[in-house]
Simulated scan of single mutants.
Amino acid sequence: MKSLILKDLYNIGHNAKSMFFMLFVFALIFVPFSGPEAYIIASGVLCSMMVMTTFSFDDNSKWMKYAMVTPVTKRDLVASKFIVLLIFSGFGVVTGLVIGFIGGIITGKVDYSNMSDILTLPGIAVVGFIIATILGSLSIPLLFKFGTEKARTLSLVSFIIPAAICFGVYEILIFFGVSFTDQLQLILLYCSPVIALAWNLAMYKISYVIFSKKDLLYS
């Protein structure tokens, strides 16, 4: 398992400079206009998409076929992709938190003398991590099912659908007079890790079922 994770991290390491550049460009766009909060979440989602790049490397090198003649199991291979997703998402929100905080001070979006402003950003980072893992995990079953090329387009759709559903539910609740008080938001924040865990476990099981049915040696 450890070797599978390190393989993906080493492969992505070659793109580290490009990713930092993209995060810097995102900072110039989001922080001055939308604030560091939006930037932190965007950074997590952007980095979670790197899991698709690991599949591209695997496809180009025919890694999956090679892995099946080694002691690596399909269960380990699927699990490693989800662990890598967690690492990428964590890297994204932590980097977004640091750059967003600095950019927020420079642009005046964050008052470093206001403790409330400072304490809000780590909470946003937790939310960003949860959103990134949920959206990123949606793409993994598609990648196992359809391969990198077809899954890229479908993954974009899979990112849009949950956002549309959440927005629709929010609008419905507002229509029926449900008020999102600070207490309700705090409850949702505490429940969100459990929801994210359950979601990722479901995506893992779906991914494993899809991958376990593939005969890679003869495909």
Rank of each mutant, 00 (worst) to 15 (best):
D59F: 00
L217D: 11
M52C: 11
Y218V: 15
L216A: 12
V94I: 15
Y170P: 02
V45M: 11
G92I: 13
F21D: 02
I165S: 06
A79Q: 10
L6K: 06
V98K: 03
T181I: 04
N15V: 01
S192G: 10
Y218G: 12
V93I: 09
F21L: 15
F91M: 13
V157Q: 03
P193T: 02
C47V: 15
L197S: 05
Y190T: 01
L46R: 04
C191R: 07
C191M: 13
S155L: 07
K213F: 06
V178R: 07
L197R: 06
A16V: 04
Y218W: 08
F146E: 05
L86D: 07
D76I: 05
V51R: 02
F30L: 05
I206C: 08
K214S: 13
L217M: 10
V94L: 15
M19N: 09
V78C: 12
P193I: 09
G13L: 02
C47A: 15
L138E: 14
L184R: 09
G100T: 03
R152Y: 10
G104K: 01
Y66G: 08
F21T: 12
V69D: 03
A198G: 00
Q183H: 10
F180K: 00
Q183V: 15
Q185F: 03
G100W: 03
Y10Q: 04
I210Y: 09
I131G: 08
D58F: 00
F91A: 14
